[in-house]
Design a protein around this nucleic acid. Structure first.
Lengths: 80, 80
DNA sequence: GTGTGACTCAAAGTCCGTG
DNA sequence: CCACGGACTTTGAGTCACA
């Protein structure tokens, strides 16, 4: 997974669901649009850092975490 | 310093100079343009994640480091 | 609750110069 | 070697209707 967009989309979806939010609810929190979040999670967009920053803030994580391949919260549990 | 663009520009300039590269030389390394690097270091642009990723890679640091307010290498040395 | 194509408008990104 | 401006093409931002 070399693609930053892919890592962003995956982590966004995971972290959003971990907060128990729908795309709509999260879009509202982040001050973005429902469909835009949808696009991001489906890797269909190439956002600017300011958008990434807004998302990271809304999720309560750092940009580094949001773009990382090894998310901070869940411990490695391969096979589960 | 809440501005991601500001953190990016500052860190980019520091890290680039630490590598002893001119803007032109670094632009070439990163596959970007001379004037664009100049703009970024002057906080005049809002780049996409893909170019931030390219810059981080060219600098040999993580995106988190590139956007961080606390650079990894030098310890705090106020007054020096 | 989510995916998708289409649309407008501004900004990303490239390239030309100049001091 | 760098700041800065102008001009240009491509793409992102932001939104909608419809599946």
């Amino acid at each position: 997974m070399e693609d930053v967009r892919h890592r962003l989309g995956s982590n966004l979806r995971k972290l959003r669901q971990a907060k128990g939010l729908s795309q709509e609810a999260f879009a509202d929190e982040a001050g973005l649009h429902r469909t835009y979040i949808s696009d991001l999670e489906r890797y269909a967009r190439n956002p600017t850092i300011t958008v990434v920053d807004r998302i990271a803030t809304a999720l309560g994580v750092s940009i580094g975490d949001l773009l990382d391949d090894t998310p901070s919260s869940p411990p490695q549990n391969p096979g589960e």
